[in-house]
Design a protein around this nucleic acid. Structure first.
Lengths: 113, 113
DNA sequence: TTCTTGCTCAACCATATGGTTGAGCAATGG
DNA sequence: CCATTGCTCAACCATATGGTTGAGCAAGAA
């Protein structure tokens, strides 16, 4: 059902704030590797590695265009993650609702604040 | 707004299939560390470390009960992750819809299959 | 008390990860 | 042609991660 391997790669790729910043920027539109690297206080080669991680996780694509490499988000790679999280978020929500109810009950009892 | 540090910990914790299995089992109910370790072809100490990672990411709690440590999921730690994913899933979905539309258009043209 | 169970902790090891630099290639500009 | 720009690759380094074993503590059983 769920391809655990792919989910692993996606989660590992996202578990780094540098790469999440890249995803953020790419959600605004295409960016070259250089553009992604620019605000990052890191060498270009370092940024390029991060791009590589995102690419092999299937989260983005890198396309040669002249001498630049243009990156764009790949819709659909996050699907699996979304489904996974949604599954547990459901569970979480029901727990939260139970918690809320309990807290409301407590507050009603105490009749304070 | 979003606590990047916490999100980092949550994503790192989940980016390991062993720990996701633990989450899965815990979603069915409380489990002791030993119970979580049992199906894992790994030493108890190893499993205990994984439990520690989940705990310090805020995803579960570990409570001493007699000589056992009982683990349970902590509702609400996944909230931030869910929100993050939901944000991008929205983006992803709109892209996917565009893709679907494009594909439908292609199929209509080809009028095949 | 003594033995056993359930677990944690510390030390250690191998490999993965995140970063660097330096070399070098391919495309564009002079 | 040659220089410059945009990037990748390989080598290297430090630290983090995932696992092991062995010691040991705390609680329950005998």
């Amino acid at each position: 059902m769920v391809e655990q391997e792919a989910l692993d790669d996606v989660l590992k790729a996202l578990a780094d704030s540098t790469r999440r910043v890249m995803i953020q920027r790419l959600s605004e539109g295409e960016r070259t590797v250089g553009e992604l690297a620019e605000p990052l206080s890191m060498s270009l080669a370092g940024a390029s590695k991060h791009v590589g991680v995102l690419e092999s996780a299937g989260l983005i694509t890198r396309e040669r265009r002249g001498r630049e490499r243009v990156c764009s988000l790949r819709p659909n790679a996050l699907r699996e993650l979304r489904d996974w999280v949604a599954h547990y978020a459901e569970f979480w929500d029901s727990r939260l609702n139970a918690l809320d109810a309990a807290l409301r009950a407590d507050n009603a009892e105490e009749d304070d604040e």
